[in-house]
Design a protein around this nucleic acid. Structure first.
Length: 422
RNA sequence: GGAGAGAUGGCCGAGUAGGUCGAAGGCGCUCGCCUGCUAAGCGAGUAUACUGGGAAACCGGUAUCGAGGGUUCGAAUCCCUCUCUCUCCGCCA
């Protein structure tokens, strides 16, 4: 959510900057509603002030029959207040509706662009392996090795669900443990294991709601949603709290499964593990002081990159352009890993700075010192990494001509010493 | 699932025959004093949001005692709904 006062004072500028995202974001109606709200508020509060004052006088009158006139007057005032407050509530709901559906303003350093084709490559790491044979896609490798069972996944649940078996299941578990250990031991994140379902307030705080309800799995009973990313429960850990400046930055990492409907992507990535309704992810989340968030994003990005470097998987870093930025993000880097089976780079992590956009929705503040006024923190998060896609990258990059797959060195301790899947 | 108890400020904890309660008291914290250090002691201060005025310091108004409605001139105190916590029984990984 954007700062109402900032919009009020900079409406044209805000609209211009939002326009760089494309897709016609509109703040039409904001100014009028905002003015109407303050008008109604002033009227209502003036009457309430009067009522409070007179009620206090009434309380001091011993003989209430002496107060009948004023009581009657105040009864009338209360009626008016009720009418004004009803109108006010209506206006505030309209205003809220606008504010909750307006995306974040892109960071000034975000490249301008019209589509994802305008994303900018920041750097490349590693060299795609020069294979002496035609590399297979991971779904073929996984099936022939008996570690990925797409048919049974579909039987058990449906399309876009997969059953992992034996060394495949263990490799996925190994990756989760490896990533969590790396981030907690080397990068100083605190591990969290949050709920995998959240309520409506949490989804609204991070920006999934109200706009993207169609992408979420919702429970039939209570008004809960399956999380599409650990970002939601982990960022909401501090919803409605005021943190101490000396505790910042706060860095959390969490493994969770993620559940996404993938509505509108019916034809895409139908084969393999790339696009699933359920996948595992290790997430990085930070709460930081505003003036440090640019640097903290670079650090978080580096922390995510380290996972690929240690696994020796080639990748590139892309700076998303204004048109490709997510709803809540002010700035985002995607990390794309090289997939020889598909001869392309595919997204494996997305690292974003949300500025105070989520913090404002979630009410997460910090106090510089005991006397300071609370200010909104900046929130950041990134995948560190998407586990299913990391498994894909390992299968495809470490495949051998005979169809076996070598286990990366650093994962072997997590695999009981296994060096190769065949 | 059944029965009962409770939710007050950073924490603890008063406050229910409705009125001067944003809320006693204690702790913690901040500033000052004092004690050559430390502890103790003394004094003052110590919520948030919105909003009006002001360049600002700041001054004023409104709201907030789990959340949302209601009764009333007036509600932390009364009524209704919901949420959460705790205890007992049942069930259960």
């Amino acid at each position: 959510m954007l700062d109402v006062k900032y919009i009020r004072d900079n409406l044209e500028l805000v609209e211009a900057r939002l326009a760089t995202r494309g897709g016609g974001v509109s703040l039409a109606g904001f100014r009028q509603l905002d003015e109407r709200r303050r008008e109604l508020l002033l009227q209502s509060e003036t009457l309430k002030a009067l009522r409070n004052k007179v009620s206090e006088e009434i309380s001091r009158i011993k003989d209430k029959s002496q107060a009948q006139g004023r009581i009657a007057e105040m009864r009338e005032v209360s009626q008016q207040v009720k009418v004004l407050d009803d109108q006010l509530r209506g206006v505030e709901e309209e205003l809220q509706q606008i504010l909750l559906t307006v995306p974040n303003i892109p960071h000034p350093d975000v490249p301008r662009g019209a589509s994802e084709a305008d994303n900018v490559e920041v750097r490349k790491w590693g060299v795609p392996p020069q294979l002496t044979f035609t590399p297979k896609p991971h779904w073929e490798l996984g099936e022939s090795l008996g570690i990925l069972d797409f048919e049974r996944g579909a039987k058990i649940t449906g399309a876009r669900f997969t059953l992992s078996r034996g060394a495949g299941a263990r490799l996925e578990r190994a990756l989760i443990n490896f990533m969590l250990d790396l981030h907690t031991e080397r990068h100083n994140y605190v591990e969290m294991l949050p709920p995998f379902m959240v309520n409506r307030e949490s989804m609204t705080a991070t920006g999934q709601l109200p706009k993207f309800e169609d992408d979420l799995f919702h429970l039939d009973g209570p008004d809960y949603f399956l999380i599409p990313t650990a970002e939601v429960p982990v960022t909401n850990i501090h919803r409605g709290e005021i943190l101490r400046g000396t505790d910042l930055p706060v860095s959390y990492t969490a493994y969770t499964p993620c559940f996404r409907k993938e509505a509108g992507s019916y034809g895409k990535d139908t084969r393999g593990l790339i696009r699933q309704h359920q996948f595992n992810k290790v997430e990085l989340v930070k709460f930081v002081k505003p003036d440090t968030s640019d640097g903290e994003l670079e650090k978080l990005l580096t922390d995510a990159e380290t996972v690929l470097q240690v696994l020796d998987l080639p990748y590139r870093v892309m700076a998303l352009c204004t048109a490709d930025l997510g709803f809540s993000a002010a700035r985002t880097y995607d990390i794309e890993v090289w997939l020889p089976g598909q001869d392309t780079y595919r997204e494996i992590s997305s690292c974003s700075n949300f500025g105070d956009f989520q913090a404002r929705r979630a009410g997460i503040k910090y106090r510089e010192d005991d006397k300071a006024k609370p200010e909104f923190v900046h929130t950041l998060n990134g995948s560190g990494l998407a586990v299913g896609r990391t498994l894909v990258a390992i299968l495809e990059n470490y495949q051998q001509e005979d169809g076996s797959v070598v286990i990366p060195e650093v994962l072997r301790p997590y695999m009981g010493g296994v060096e190769r899947i065949d």
